[in-house]
Simulated scan of single mutants.
Amino acid sequence: MPGGRLTQQERQRIAAGLADGLPYAEIARRLERPTSTISREVGRNGGPSGYRPQHAHRATAQRARRGTPSPPRATGVPGGAREEEIVEMAVRSGLPRMMARVHLDLLLSEDGKRTAAELTRRLKVSPASVSVAVNYLVQHGYVRREHDPQRRRDIYVVDDDAWYRSIVISSRQTLEAAQVAMAAARTSGLDTPVGQRLAKVGTFLERVTLDMVESTDRWRALLA
């Protein structure tokens, strides 16, 4: 396993991995480096959205010549190390990276609201990327869209009830999958191995999802 300081080539590969949306752990695996080395390198050199390999290499060399410590890692602003850990956790749970970044920025806003222009400016990404992300989040119930008629713009909102909506939407999709499995089981024949297997899967998904919906309704008042 390589040791010592990162080379310029390694930093270029880190930048390429970030551009491809790879998690720190996968970038580290490809470079045969500890994950902590990658997260520290990115965190102290602009974060995932602002990482530039040439700048990072020059900055590291300058710090080494001066013998001064690297800047402290931010923990209270979007893009800081702690927020990136939350984004990584969301990505591991299945949320696409850009959607996770937009969702977190909305969650960290004072009133839970941002315009598309604000998201674009804060995250330093293209308007098209923000548009795709918020459409996904709205579709899955994480965010709702409000229209500002005076300024003719949309405002994206994370409210307390968003958690309820997202679970309901996800449950509805899982129930549809359960119904498809049950229908396929009947088509294959419930007395065949394939039919029995599909029937078990459909029944399992249906029962678990209905339990989740019941629990969600029972505890919804906690969000009020």
Rank of each mutant, 00 (worst) to 15 (best):
R152L: 15
L106G: 02
Q139S: 04
D154T: 09
D105F: 01
D105M: 01
A100S: 08
A183H: 08
D161A: 12
Y136P: 00
A183S: 11
R144F: 09
A184Y: 00
S131F: 02
V158A: 14
R153T: 13
R151G: 04
M182T: 10
V180C: 08
V102I: 14
D159L: 05
R114C: 06
P127G: 04
L119V: 00
K113T: 12
L175N: 11
Y142P: 07
V125L: 03
S188E: 10
V157N: 09
E110Y: 01
Q139A: 04
D161C: 13
R152P: 09
D154M: 10
A128G: 10
E146C: 12
Y142G: 08
I169G: 05
R121G: 12
K113L: 08
M98Y: 00
R145L: 10
N135Y: 03
L108A: 11
S171P: 14
K124G: 07
E176C: 07
E118K: 00
A128W: 15
S170P: 07
A128M: 11
R145H: 05
R151H: 13
N135G: 07
Y142V: 04
A183P: 07
E110C: 04
D160L: 08
D105E: 03
L137D: 02
A100F: 05
W163G: 09
A133W: 01
A177M: 13
Q173C: 03
Y136F: 06
V138A: 06
S129W: 03
V132C: 08
A177N: 07
V180T: 14
D161V: 11
V130F: 00
D148V: 06
V138Q: 03
A133H: 06
S166D: 12
D111H: 15
L175F: 12
V158K: 11
L108I: 05
E110H: 04
L104W: 00
I155S: 13
R151P: 01
V132S: 12
L137E: 02
D159W: 08
R152K: 12
A178P: 08
V143R: 05
Y156E: 14
E176G: 08
H147G: 07
V158N: 13
V168N: 08
T174P: 05
M99Q: 11
S129R: 08
K113H: 04
R153C: 13
V132G: 03
E176A: 12
S188A: 13
I155G: 09
V134A: 14
V134C: 10
Y164F: 08
M98G: 01
R186Q: 15
